[in-house]
Design a protein around this nucleic acid. Structure first.
Lengths: 237, 237
DNA sequence: GACTGCCTAGAGTATATACTCTAATAATAC
DNA sequence: GTATTATTAGAGTATATACTCTAGGCAGTC
């Protein structure tokens, strides 16, 4: 990925993202990034004024990606395949830029541009979720609801999505804390679909239940005894 | 609060909590804490081996508080007053120790004891939420559900509760980011009750709707235009 | 008054972190 | 080829951070 043909600037962005995702932004210094790329700190600072600028550009990629996937068609209702696509895409994005939500508050505190943009990003995501609910109702998949309830539901979906990874990481035992996989992350879809279950129309109920089943966690999430968890969800990558 | 009669050790814990809550653990050094108390760093380190130990003890207080409030009675069903009490208490706890969830992942990565304990804490909270759902069903407030759905619902409640504050802080504009209030935080109860709405029995539906209404945010959360938000939710403290 | 145990001050340190500066090299334009 | 610009190396720096070390005060006790 960080091959020879790539421009240094892009290599910096890519490597930063990798390292941030793996070890957390707080644990990765600009010197680490430079060392990992075998370039000098001076070189890094030739391309970026500071660490915040690197993070800001990575965020813009993230934003662009999610905006691209959450472009809800205006002219037609959406079906279950669309819904699956939206959910998969959002969790893919979350995975690719997973460092971001981990230190979100600190990052927003240190960069006003980021705070401003992230706020807009959140509002666009919430609006998209809201539209998805609307379109699902248009398609007869869920029963239509009052605007106010739909807004609150959308916000809950957003809260579940953005907190699911943190939950996974904190629920892991120490020795597996680094071994989070995309598959596990996508079990968040199970949680999101749980939110929608009571609103499903009878015609679609079974189909959504079946879809949800595909994402069911392989270990007992909410069990009080944690003994079973050790044997589950081994890392694949 | 940090009066003359208090022991230095306790003053350190109290001041640390205050500073962490106000400015984030990442931004507060042991030197800051000592300076704020007008004691020497040496003194601080006489009482605590390191920063992690301070945080760990604060967490134990937090844990104890929440465990105390989430002691669900085994012998009887619970009513709406109980439910309100649980929700209020949990959000009170979240408020008092609000620094904790902000840097959770980093904190767990730096202290294995904390990771271990927090994992147990999460499981106890999830179990308590699960029991509350059970007792609400016993009391005829919500319809009983299959274990598996109830578990997933409990987890969603937990995700909403623990992510609500982060959402508020990131949704705020820069100039109000410090002005989060307990009142705003408790609007999370509105979101939690939203999760329960579809499961309410007809007899209790109106009453819970009324309860939920009390916590309704005074600004349009999910609106795309953010223009209205500036005028709302001024700080009181 | 000296001994003891608890507490405190404050200077000091090793390491890290974000970032700078200068000089040199590679690429490109003319 | 030479002038110009873009890129890079690498040593260096100011500041911060978590933490240490030594010396001493103060309260109680015999």
């Amino acid at each position: 990925m960080t091959g020879e043909t790539m421009k240094t600037r892009d290599k910096i962005l890519l490597t930063s993202l990798e390292l941030f995702n793996e070890r957390g932004e707080r644990n990765i210094t600009t010197n680490h990034i430079a060392a990992h790329l075998a370039i000098s700190p001076g070189n890094l600072y030739y391309h970026f004024r500071n660490k915040s600028d690197i993070i800001y550009e990575i965020f813009q990629e993230y934003e662009k990606l999610v905006d691209y996937y959450l472009d809800i068609p205006e002219d037609r209702a959406i079906n279950l395949e669309d819904l699956t696509f939206y959910l998969e895409s959002v969790f893919d994005g979350l995975w690719s830029y997973r460092f971001f939500h981990r230190d979100l508050e600190y990052l927003l505190d240190s960069d006003p541009r980021l705070r401003q943009d992230y706020r807009g990003f959140t509002n666009r995501c919430l609006a998209a979720i809201d539209r998805i609910f609307g379109k699902l109702a248009d398609g007869g998949i869920i029963a239509p609801q009052l605007d106010e309830l739909r807004s609150a539901m959308s916000l809950n979906v957003w809260l579940v999505i953005t907190n699911w990874m943190a939950f996974l990481k904190t629920a892991h035992a120490a020795d597996e804390s680094a071994s989070l996989t995309l598959t596990e992350l996508k079990q968040g879809i199970y949680q999101v679909l749980t939110l929608e279950l009571p609103y499903l129309t009878p015609e679609y109920r079974e189909r959504v239940m079946a879809l949800r089943e595909k994402y069911r966690p392989s270990f007992p999430d909410t069990s009080e005894s944690s003994g079973c968890r050790e044997s589950a969800a081994r890392e694949v990558g």
